[in-house]
Simulated assay, not measured.
Amino acid sequence: MATSFDKYQKRKLISSYISVVISIALVLFLLGCLGLLVINSKKVADHFKEQVVMTIYLNDTAKDVEVKQLEKSLIMADYSKKAVYVSKEEAAELMKADTGEDFMDFVGYNPLKNSIDVYLKADFVTTEKLSEISESLSDKNFIEEIRYDNDLVELMNDNVKKISLWVLIISGLFTLIAVLLINSSIRLAVYSKRFIIKTMQMVGATKRFIRRPFVWQSVKLGIIGAVIALIGMAVVLYYLDITFIELRLLENTVLIAALFVGIFLLGILITWLSTFIATQRFLNLKTDQLYY
């Protein structure tokens, strides 16, 4: 009978440990994924900003040397990521591919203009910067028109600000929830051993002596949970990196390493602090209060 009871208690203890580890791992994993989002949010926003194109339309009378000089200056400009010359013939082919019809069959000639598509660096994709760049280029007499989607730029910048604010708010809330959830799991684990704690105290064991094995056990569970969470984060990061190659998510190695270390230490810190507080609470309770 005693053997069966011991086995039952052992299974119950192992089940309790597994549930604590799973809780810690899931919470830290979600918190880590949110941290990855925060770290790479600017890079993702910059990626979309750099898809905005400023198109410079050229007069038919523009000389080749003028066009080449302009293209070269645009490529070397601080605000330019790249500049691509598009002839009117190439533009016609692109339009034909998009619409599926050859509009020149109806018009009888090619009304399009030679142009240069300028892909701007993310820091310059604002209404003010684009206006300044446009004004600086418009004084050239062989440039007919400069176009860019100003409404899209304003909408994109507004959305980036809103999303960044909400990501920070959600990160703060989720960190608080993570601490509370892990604390709750640890407290339940310690609660199941409250009578053992009080028995040890009654036979003369010091609070520090009683607390030490509980804290060390919880820290070990925190380490295991944190390692599982880090493995999950590494898998997610690797998958996103090979799926969205253009974002180059693994470039921020220092920040990513800091996040991984932070998640690992957070798992240890929360479990240590939660166990310390929980054991201290039961150590300060009277014997008759353990039943409530």
Rank of each mutant, 00 (worst) to 15 (best):
E135Y: 11
K88C: 05
M202S: 14
T287Y: 15
Y119L: 05
D288K: 03
S23L: 00
A62Y: 03
T206G: 11
I170H: 06
S73H: 03
I116Q: 07
L70N: 08
D139H: 14
L30P: 02
T127G: 08
V20S: 10
S87R: 00
V44N: 08
D102E: 13
E66I: 04
V153C: 03
Y238L: 08
L112Y: 01
L155W: 12
L13A: 09
A122I: 01
A278L: 06
S218H: 00
T3E: 15
E50T: 02
V52L: 05
I263M: 06
G172V: 00
F103P: 03
K113A: 13
V227I: 13
T61S: 15
A189L: 04
E144L: 11
D46L: 07
L30K: 02
A229K: 07
I242Y: 12
F276E: 14
V65W: 04
K49M: 05
N252K: 14
V235G: 01
I169R: 09
L259F: 01
A92T: 07
L285Q: 15
K161W: 08
T55V: 13
P213H: 06
A234S: 15
I169Q: 07
S23Y: 00
I14L: 09
S134L: 10
Y17G: 12
V67Q: 07
Q201T: 00
K198E: 08
V84H: 07
R147S: 14
A25L: 09
I169T: 04
I116N: 03
K129T: 10
V44W: 14
A189Q: 07
M54G: 08
I196Q: 10
I245Q: 14
L152A: 13
A258N: 08
T275I: 00
L285E: 11
S136I: 08
M156F: 13
K161L: 12
F214E: 03
A226Q: 06
I242S: 10
M104V: 14
L31V: 04
M54I: 05
I186A: 00
K7S: 11
S164K: 14
Q201K: 14
K12Y: 09
D158Y: 10
N40D: 07
K81E: 15
L237D: 07
G262A: 12
M104D: 05
I75D: 11
R281F: 11
T3C: 07
F282P: 05
D149M: 02
L70K: 01
N59Y: 01
Y292G: 05
V167R: 12
V38W: 12
K49A: 07
R147N: 15
K198R: 10
S134D: 09
V53P: 11
D78R: 01
K49W: 08
L181M: 12
I146D: 13
F276P: 03
F142T: 05
E246Y: 06
V44A: 15
A189E: 01
I170C: 07
L230C: 04
G225L: 02
S16C: 01
L240H: 04
D123I: 09
V160A: 02
D241I: 05
I14T: 04
V203I: 14
L74I: 10
S41Y: 10
K63G: 04
K121F: 04
K207D: 12
N183S: 12
I133T: 09
E93R: 10
T206N: 11
